[in-house]
Design a protein around this nucleic acid. Structure first.
Lengths: 259, 259
DNA sequence: GGAATCGTTCACATATTCCGAACGTTTATA
DNA sequence: TATAAACGTTCGGAATATGTGAACGATTCC
């Protein structure tokens, strides 16, 4: 049997799975990890010690936690995006103007990453203890407003590649799980210039999103404004109102970009 | 020959070294990495593809970059610190009050990590394109003001453990490289309540730092305020002035902490 | 006081990583 | 235009580093 293409490095995948298990469990012991991943304790033992040695995990008694060594890498990645510092301020501005939650998201490898997040009234910019929207979170493209806005600005070819890679997993009853339905939706988004999310990601959460395009009409990211359904009125005029605030902010941002 | 203790997982170390090489080179090609780490191209090839698949690297043509997949982990780690959201605001406040650079640092595994950073006049909170002090950076404890402030609040035993692990590498001519000299310095810091950094980290950079202690007198982090030597006057009275701003801010913060 | 659980150590077997040579393309050079 | 060098990629083979499971001491829980 001949190999096709590059052979995945299993040991690395194991180490990463261990870190993921520690994160998802909000801390975990050796036995927790071994049990969850079905690995021998001795195996996990070696991995854990290696990861601690490298700083990617920290040991506190017998529980392990995600280490701060991820920071130098994540900040490097974040700052590599030329829009990041500008977009940050826009997120704060959007949150204040609308009194809702606002975030800036970019696409990488077919997934959406929140680079910055803010709540309107809150003084804790960029931070929210347990919000699913805090900075650093990763989403699918098809079930959030900014994700759909970005998809709408990509070529059908790239959209299809993304769908092939990640599928259309449902997170609520309203998630679009049908490919042709999604393409219809993307067409609508293109026509009206912004995307909406009607509880497709989380029950009770609505949002409006719009993409930022660079000088060559390439998508560089997307902003969205959202909040609980009871606060974000469903009627078309208030949605359009929010969308207008978004689009104005983006226009202002795009005019600042080098071209 | 019998093993002593846990055996490091070499494959994982290799993967991490590759990611580090990519970051340090601000992007790198397969050959770059293979050359720098002295590994076979085919080996690097497999690692790169695995890391891309996991999202920790991104491929752009033939150059690889650090991926945003580090973000969900770093933010998790950062938010795990109960002081983070409060400390953020204090950093902004300190930067504004002093008109200098301010940051909040915590210790992990004997190293100091910048959790938040701000420049006084700048509107770009927490961000600085190329500053060595931006959020996410990692320092040694012995050659920065906040690091020394934290060391001064730790037991001699722990200090010695940290020194054993990381040594006293010099980054300028003024870096303290002698162990007993450092312990003398720590004693001074304890007596006056704050630490200084007289171009011990970077030539031309001076700073003042003080530690934050929790209810049980355990160190939870440290703030520092600093700037170029031409702006941060060397005389004792202006240093004390800045130290007072720092200590007041910390007092105010500590009074907010649960006890 | 006993049993169960924890993390740790170790010898062993084999699966996995690593290497190096060869390939097809592209880029640079003569 | 022809030739050479460099790139990423593929693949067979060899060695080694990983994964396993059993045994250990310590701690915790019945």
């Amino acid at each position: 049997m001949t190999d096709d293409g590059p052979r995945p490095v299993k040991t690395t995948k194991t180490s990463l799975a261990i870190v993921r298990a520690v994160r998802d469990g909000h801390g975990a012991t050796l036995s927790d990890v071994a049990g969850r991943l079905d690995l021998a304790k001795s195996t996990v033992h070696n991995h854990l010690h290696t990861l601690v040695d490298e700083g990617f995990l920290v040991r506190d008694g017998d529980t392990y936690h995600v280490g701060l060594q991820f920071l130098p890498f994540s900040e490097h990645a974040r700052n590599r995006n030329p829009l990041y510092s500008t977009a940050r301020k826009r997120v704060y501005s959007l949150a204040e103007k609308t009194g809702n939650e606002a975030d800036f998201i970019v696409e990488e490898n077919g997934r959406a990453y929140t680079l910055e997040y803010a709540i309107g009234e809150s003084t804790a910019r960029g931070f929210s203890g347990s919000s699913p929207f805090r900075a650093g979170n990763r989403f699918y493209m098809h079930n959030c407003a900014s994700g759909k806005a970005m998809l709408a600005s990509l070529s059908d070819e790239r959209v299809r590649a993304i769908l092939d890679r990640w599928g259309l997993p449902a997170t609520t009853d309203h998630t679009i799980t049908d490919e042709s339905a999604l393409f219809d939706e993307l067409e609508t988004i293109r026509q009206r210039g912004y995307a909406t999310n009607e509880e497709e990601l989380i029950d009770g959460y609505r949002s409006v999103g719009a993409a930022v395009t660079g000088p060559d009409d390439d998508v560089v990211g997307a902003f969205s404004v959202g909040g609980p359904a009871y606060r974000m009125a469903v009627d078309e005029s208030s949605t359009r109102e929010i969308a207008q605030v978004l689009l104005d902010e983006i226009d202002s941002l795009e005019s600042e970009l080098p071209n």
